[in-house]
C-alpha cells in the first residue's frame, strides 16, 4: 500500500516560503495514503493561480487547466471514469470569482469529487488584487481606497445550493485538515473543503496570527451536529464564517453517478465503444 511519500514528486513548488499551500499539499498527500489510494488512482485537477500549481506537485495524475474551470474539467474526469478518485483544487479567485458559476452547479450536481479551495482572500499570482473573499475595506492594488463590495460567504452559498459535504480548515492545523480531506474523499458526493491558506507576501491582514485569533474550531463543541443543515447555517453566521471542522454532511443524498440512469459501476473509459450491427440497425428504425 502506498504511503504519503509515494504521492510526492521531485518538483519544487514555486510558492513563497511560508505559503499556506505547502500544508495543503502535504495534507492531500497524507489523506490520499490514509484512505488507501495508489498514486495512479488519484487525479488532481487544478485551476490557475498560485494554488493551481498544486496538481504538478503531487505524484498522481494531474491536469492544470484554465482559470476558473477546474470543476467542470474534474467533473468530466469523474464522469468518464468513476473508479478514479478526483480532487479539484484552486484558489478563492478561481473558485469564487471567475469560477463561481461552476462551483454552485458542481455542488448541485453532486458528483463524487472533492473540491479543496486554498482561500487567501487575495490574488497572489497577479501580485495583490482584491478577491471576493477580501474583507470590506481591504486595501489592495485594485482597491487602493479599500474594497467596497461585500465579502462572499462560500459556506453559506454551498449550503443553500444543496451541498452534501461542507468543511473548512486552516493550513496550520495539518491534523484537522488531513482528517477533513480524508472524510471528503470518503464522502459519496461532492465535498467542499475551504482552507484558510495565508498569503505571506500580499496579504498583511489575514496572517497566520490573525487566523489563530479569529478561528472557532468546531472540535470544541462536542454537541455540534453536522447533519443539521439549519444549525450549520446558524453556526456559519454566528462565527462570521470563521469556523473550522466538518460543518455539514448529508450522507443520504445519492451522488450524480448513482442517480444517472444507465450509469454502470465500472468507468465508461473501460467500456467497449463499438456498436454491434444489430444495435446500429435498431437505431435506424426510428428514421424509417
Amino acid at each position: 500500500m502506498a504511503t504519503f511519500k509515494e504521492f510526492r514528486n521531485n518538483v519544487k513548488p514555486n510558492w513563497c516560503p511560508g505559503c499556506g499551500d505547502f500544508s495543503v499539499q502535504a495534507a492531500i498527500q497524507r489523506a490520499a495514503a490514509n484512505v488507501g489510494l495508489e498514486p495512479e488512482q488519484l487525479a488532481v485537477i487544478s485551476g490557475i493561480g498560485c494554488s493551481g500549481r498544486i496538481s504538478g506537485y503531487i505524484n498522481a495524475y494531474g491536469l492544470h487547466g484554465i482559470h476558473g474551470r477546474a470543476l467542470p474539467i474534474a467533473q468530466g474526469v469523474k464522469l468518464a471514469n468513476r473508479e478514479l478518485t478526483v480532487i479539484a483544487s484552486g484558489g478563492d479567485g478561481d473558485g469564487f470569482a471567475i469560477g463561481m458559476g461552476h462551483t454552485v452547479h458542481a455542488i448541485r450536481r453532486n458528483l463524487d469529487i472533492t473540491y479543496i479551495v486554498m482561500d487567501n482572500q487575495i490574488y497572489g499570482l497577479t501580485k495583490g488584487q482584491t478577491s471576493p473573499r477580501s474583507a470590506e475595506g481591504f486595501k489592495t492594488k485594485s482597491t487602493p481606497e479599500g474594497s467596497i463590495e461585500s465579502t462572499l460567504s462560500p459556506l453559506e452559498i454551498a449550503l443553500s445550493a444543496g451541498a452534501t459535504f461542507v468543511a473548512q480548515s486552516f493550513s496550520s492545523d495539518l491534523k484537522q485538515l488531513t482528517s477533513l480531506i480524508e472524510q471528503g474523499l470518503q464522502h459519496k458526493g461532492f465535498s467542499l473543503i475551504n482552507v484558510f491558506s495565508p498569503c505571506v507576501t500580499f496579504n498583511k491582514i489575514n496572517t497566520y496570527d490573525w487566523f489563530k485569533e479569529h478561528i472557532v474550531n468546531l472540535d470544541q463543541f462536542p454537541d455540534y451536529d453536522p447533519t443539521n443543515r439549519v444549525a450549520a447555517m446558524n453556526k456559519i453566521m454566528e462565527t462570521g464564517g470563521m469556523l473550522t471542522g466538518l460543518i455539514y454532511q448529508n450522507k443520504e443524498r445519492k451522488s450524480y453517478e448513482d442517480l444517472a440512469v444507465g450509469f454502470k459501476p465500472e468507468g465508461i473509459a473501460k467500456q467497449d465503444i463499438k456498436l454491434s450491427r444489430d444495435e446500429f440497425e435498431k437505431l435506424l428504425t426510428e428514421f424509417k
Binding site: A43, I45, L63, G65, I66, R69, L71, P72, I73, A74, Q75, G76, V77, K78, L79, A80, N81, L84, G101, H102, V104, H105, R109, A260, V261, G262, F263, K264, G267, I268, A269, Q271
Partner: peptide, 24 residues
C-alpha cells in the same frame, strides 16, 4: 452506459468534455 450532462454554460460544457476526453 453513457449520459448527457446539461451544464450551466458552454464553458462548462467544453471543459467537461476536455476532462472526460483526457480520462479516456
Amino acid at each position: 452506459g453513457g449520459t448527457v450532462v446539461q451544464t450551466e454554460d458552454e464553458i462548462a460544457a467544453v471543459t467537461m468534455a476536455i476532462g472526460a476526453n483526457y480520462a479516456g
